[in-house]
Amino acid sequence: MDADQTSAPCLNRRQLLKAGLGVGGSLLLGGCWADGYGEDVANATRPLNERIEAWLQSKGPGPEFPRSQVRPEELLLNSFNGVPALDPASYRLQVAGLVGRPLSLDLAALAALPQQEMIIRHICVEGWAAIVAWGGVRLADVLKLAQASNLGSYVYFDSADGYYESWDIASAMHPQTLLATHMNGEPLPAQNGAPLRLATPIKLGYKLSKWVTAIRVEPTLMASRKGYWEDQGYEWFAGL
């Protein structure tokens, strides 16, 4: 045994353990004051993360699943303000903004467009996921029908309950981004967004507005109005 070790122990093992727990604890407690710096961390790393996400998404379609893997009970419900009452007969989807042909589509007009069904994994920012079969029209088809301008880089969505969202145009034009009217082979239930909601495998659930009533093509992103959750701090791109 060297001299160092005999002379050094001014703490026994238990004391050291306590000290260690104290330091660890205060570092974790430090998390409370560090909480506020999260936004700085995000701002430093997000541009790169987003660029990688967008690049990955251009690499091909998202995975689809066999119907046997659909688990309706795994799809949890989120709504910031209950379920709005919408009358299917008077429902109109407005498409406006930077478009050559503004639209006001009723449900029959939407049903007359080419229909698509996809079985994808719906992933919530909270961490849970569910495999769901969504059916409806491609958002890209509606935007083309409205002759969306090349200058429109962003697409805004307004919902009947006051929820609002904004997307980049590339994600909106993605072949798996749907304006869904059906879920798991049935007409969309009210609590899931009837008569019309967004569905895609490439974005987190909070980007997928329910009860959509209006679509606007915009040249810019309004910094103070990016989306209901985004304006409170959620990440805007939210790509998967």
Partner: peptide, 20 residues
């Protein structure tokens, strides 16, 4: 006491920010 970020979005900032 053992969490960092204050809420979900804050936790994701830190987690995805430090990921790389």
């Amino acid at each position: 006491l053992v969490t960092l970020g204050g809420w979900l979005a804050g936790g994701r900032y830190w987690h995805l920010g430090f990921m790389a």
